[in-house]
Design a protein around this nucleic acid. Sequence first.
DNA 1: GAAATTACTGGACGCTCGTACGATACTCTG
DNA 2: CAGAGTATCGTACGAGCGTCCAGTAATTTC
Lengths: 208, 208
Amino acid sequence: MRTKTSVAVRDTPTFIEAARRAQILNAALETIAELGFMNASLSQIAKRAGISKSVIGYYFPAKDDLVRAAVDQFYVTGHTTMMGQVEHSTTATEMLRLYVRTNVNYIDQNRVATRGIGEIIANFRTPDGQPVFRIEDAEPMVQGTAALFEWGQKTGEFRPFDTRVMAVLLRGAMDTFGQQLSVNPELDAENYINEVTETFIRAARKES
Amino acid sequence: MRTKTSVAVRDTPTFIEAARRAQILNAALETIAELGFMNASLSQIAKRAGISKSVIGYYFPAKDDLVRAAVDQFYVTGHTTMMGQVEHSTTATEMLRLYVRTNVNYIDQNRVATRGIGEIIANFRTPDGQPVFRIEDAEPMVQGTAALFEWGQKTGEFRPFDTRVMAVLLRGAMDTFGQQLSVNPELDAENYINEVTETFIRAARKES
DNA sequence: GAAATTACTGGACGCTCGTACGATACTCTG
DNA sequence: CAGAGTATCGTACGAGCGTCCAGTAATTTC
């Protein structure tokens, strides 16, 4: 007679299950953010969560599933949070301002998660060495950003330029903020927002 | 009776030793660039080099030494290569142009090494999880870049702005190019150079 | 409050890692 | 061309990894 070693598939998860899952996901992101993806073993994660290693195996069939769940959760909450704030702008310039502000603030207020997810995306690979999250998976994000600049070119707010390169530069500026934050936790988000906004508006706007 | 299991310390290395060291360093960077730092085991590196795992141990006492040697080599050759090209500019604007061009071209022409070193810097940690190469180690690079912008402000070519943020943004734009390259190897370096140069000159220059 | 289900534990398994080592092959030098 | 020094190999070891599993504790169900 075999005993159950993994959680049952249910329509509505138990209260305990929901809480444990959240706790484990949180501990995983914390551990990854602090030790790096390659040192974040299940033992380490379990130790931080104060639970036995096997509990993780009980709720997540394999480590892959845990990692994927963490990434999914991050993008679902993050994307909806940010989209809501940006979408009702009346000019491309205003949208650019809001885009920078919303993104930087989100990173600032979700430092551990942002850092952890970054580690995962950079280092999570299949057994044969292929990245699980390839850079082209961020292509929709780049194209969405490029659309902002295309809009501005259409309305005449922006000069002609390669919108894709500009979008990649802006995305890079967002990522850079996260990295700078981990160097200097006292970094002033407001100042960064203002400088980056000014920089990109000047770079994109039509000659006066 | 013990036999020698590591290479002797010599004033001038043997021909074989120099060749093997170079071969191993090269294979290591290749492997790291392709499989990622965390999957680049000594077995994998040895396999690529077509040698036994023990040969690596013969020339490099520990894996750490191999990795550090690879980083050292990269920075020594890279830094001197680029400094030489930029240093005799007559205006800050010209230097900015040269800076972008030289950096992008260097990354373009050293793709594997650039990618490998990036992997190492991001993922190489001490046993307790602390990064070996901390981001503040890149501070001299950032300050050197900031000095370029300060110069331009002093000569009146550039408007007032936070030179450190601008320097971080420019460094980020350089790093971004490398990442974009690994997505799309056909990426046009010349176009990227032109767009980035135009972007930063417009962002930095004084109002006309 | 007994039975059934759910939640958790500690230990064992097979695997790969980095390192260490004894033995063997190659290559110079006298 | 013998022998010392140099270079390479295969293998073995302990540690840590992710996964598995039989058994126990806790909670829910009837």
